[in-house]
């Protein structure tokens, strides 16, 4: 069906997108790679030059690097556990017959549409604040000492804030998958006397496994880059207690103006994200039949 003519036209139609994305990918990537081998500090112009692996050496031996990696992993894992477990439970709940299902779904999904800076500031000030926050009032009411969440448990607090925003995403996708589950299968299991737990582990969970994998992979890509929530709540502190890799690179490059060091970090972040991306791309590729 496709003639020579239409193929040429197709190539012409697709080329702007390809050229733009190619430029967007290659130019900054090559620049980051190049800078990562240079001594380049915006505060010290004229002191440039090739320094080999020095930036990488400094980046890896910086004590902040190890804690940033640990924090990044904790943040990703913490949010994943909360959102996946919570998402499965919520998806099962929302799939049950009830009154006003549409409204409940709207309530549950809403946090996904709240911009990160708003959710972070609302949680920080109106809930976590040790004097006027809602939790402080609650603690006082039941006779407990108020707790300064962001000072004493900064990473856990940030995990809560981020998880609140991503729980709707996991729920929505798992609910979509849940709705494609054949109800006859469940009824048959019920007739055979399967318990609720058995039904969950042998029917529901295997059916959801693909959707769970997709949720994990997509969220991981985004969670590796959590930034705004940290910037407006703790600025990575106290100390480095809530600095993840993204925030560390931001600090080194845009606050300390060390372009070389920041670029070395950037290369490492790209490599880390790519490890996850390979698995995600494979899953998506399998599902795409052309």
């Amino acid at each position: 069906m496709a003639t020579q003519h239409s193929r040429a036209a197709a190539r012409f139609m697709i080329s702007p997108a390809v050229i733009l994305l190619l430029g967007w990918m290659l130019i900054p990537l090559i620049m980051t790679l190049w800078f990562s081998f240079q001594r380049y500090n915006l505060l010290m112009p004229g002191q440039g030059g090739f320094v080999g692996w020095e930036n990488y050496y400094f980046f890896f031996t910086d004590p902040a690097f190890v804690s940033a990696i640990v924090n990044t992993l904790m943040l990703v894992l913490g949010v994943l556990i909360i959102t996946v477990v919570g998402g499965i439970l919520l998806a099962i709940l929302l799939d049950q017959p009830m009154w006003g299902q549409g409204i409940v779904r709207i309530l549950v999904i809403a946090p996904f549409f709240v911009m990160p800076t708003v959710s972070a500031l609302v949680w920080k000030n109106m809930f976590f604040n040790p004097v006027n926050g809602l939790f402080a009032h609650l603690f006082k009411a039941i006779g407990l000492q108020p707790f300064d969440f962001l000072a004493q448990a900064p990473l856990a607090s940030i995990i809560c804030i981020v998880a609140w925003g991503w729980l709707p995403f996991a729920t929505l996708i798992l609910l979509t998958a849940m709705q494609s589950l054949d109800s006859e299968q469940l009824e048959a299991a019920e007739m055979d006397g399967a318990s609720a737990l058995a039904k969950f582990f042998y029917i529901v969970l295997p059916h959801l496994s693909r959707a769970i994998t997709v949720v994990i992979l997509i969220q991981t890509i985004f969670l590796l880059s959590v930034f705004a929530e940290i910037l407006v709540t703790t600025s990575g502190g106290p100390g480095d207690a809530s600095t993840n890799l993204t925030y560390l690179i931001y600090k080194q490059s845009l606050l300390q103006y060390d372009v070389g060091l920041g670029s070395a970090g950037g290369v490492i972040a790209i490599i880390l994200a790519n490890i996850v991306a390979i698995f995600l791309m494979r899953m998506i590729g399998k599902n795409l039949d052309i």
């Binding site: 697709i14 990537l29 620049m31 590796l224 970090g265 950037g266 972040a269 994200a273 590729g285």
Partner: peptide, 24 residues
């Protein structure tokens, strides 16, 4: 299919990895 997958892969690039060049 390759083109589509490649386009998607550009989305996987962590923003902080290209922050400095874009900023400059």
């Amino acid at each position: 299919k390759d083109v589509l997958m490649w386009m998607l892969s550009t989305k996987m690039l962590p923003p902080v990895g290209v922050l400095i060049p874009i900023y400059l």
